[in-house]
Simulated scan of single mutants.
Amino acid sequence: MNVADAAYAVVHDYPGGSESLAPRLGMSAAILRNKVNPNNTTHHLTLAEADRLTGITGDLRIAHALAGAHGAVVMPLGDAEDASDMAVLEVIAGLWSRSGSLGTEVHGALADNVLTGVELGRIRSAAYALQAQVLGLINRLEAMAEPQGAGDDR
């Protein structure tokens, strides 16, 4: 999905659509609809508006589309609110599970010496899920870390 289509979908899929989002962005619903209409050549969503739209909706499709257009991915960092030993253990157990899923997908895809696009898609999904789990672990550990210099014995 390209960025223009993603912006259109974010607005139109939001409960209440442009009617409910536009006032929160400081514009009329008609202007917002024009800004996210991929066929409109006179009104354009600014980066600041796209940022606010993403923040209000919590919908990352615009960021995903932009990253995808440049060969990258966007991954949420995960919730660091629960930064206890048990929460970290839970994330590590998830990492083991995701690692196994990735290995299973790669093994299954290569078993017949032919890698299909569908198989590659499953491998990619498993790899991204593993990466998200690693980012979640780092996020929780960062929340637990002492301030720089406190207890640092290096």
Rank of each mutant, 00 (worst) to 15 (best):
V3D: 15
V3P: 11
A4N: 10
A4K: 15
A7F: 02
A7C: 11
Y8M: 14
A9H: 12
D13N: 12
P15D: 11
G16M: 03
E19Y: 03
E19I: 14
S20Q: 15
S20R: 14
R24C: 06
L25P: 05
G26I: 06
M27Y: 06
M27T: 06
A29E: 13
A30H: 11
A30W: 12
L32Q: 03
L32H: 10
L32G: 09
N34S: 11
N34R: 15
K35L: 13
P38M: 13
N39K: 15
N40I: 12
N40M: 12
L45N: 02
L47W: 13
A50W: 02
A50Q: 01
D51E: 11
D51A: 10
D51T: 07
R52I: 02
L53C: 03
T54F: 05
G55L: 11
G55A: 10
I56G: 04
I56L: 12
D59C: 06
R61T: 07
R61A: 13
R61F: 09
H64R: 10
A65K: 11
A69C: 09
H70W: 03
G71V: 03
V73G: 06
V73Q: 11
P76F: 09
L77M: 13
L77C: 09
A80Q: 08
E81R: 14
E81D: 13
E81S: 13
D85E: 15
M86T: 14
M86C: 12
A87L: 04
V88R: 11
V91D: 07
R98I: 04
G100A: 02
G100E: 03
G100D: 05
L102H: 08
G103Y: 11
G103I: 04
T104L: 13
T104I: 12
T104P: 09
V106W: 03
G108Y: 03
G108K: 01
G108C: 02
G108W: 01
A109G: 02
L110I: 10
A111T: 03
D112L: 00
N113T: 05
V114A: 02
V114M: 01
V114H: 02
L115K: 00
L115Y: 01
T116I: 01
T116S: 01
V118C: 00
V118M: 00
E119Q: 02
R124K: 07
S125K: 13
A126V: 03
A127Y: 09
A127Q: 06
A127V: 01
A129D: 15
L130S: 07
Q131I: 11
Q131R: 11
A132W: 07
A132M: 04
A132D: 04
V134Y: 08
V134K: 10
L135H: 12
L135I: 11
G136A: 14
L137W: 04
L137E: 07
L137H: 05
L137K: 04
I138K: 10
N139A: 13
L141R: 04
E142C: 07
A143W: 01
M144D: 00
M144G: 00
A145D: 08
A145P: 00
E146S: 02
E146D: 07
E146G: 01
E146N: 09
P147L: 01
P147N: 01
Q148H: 12
Q148C: 01
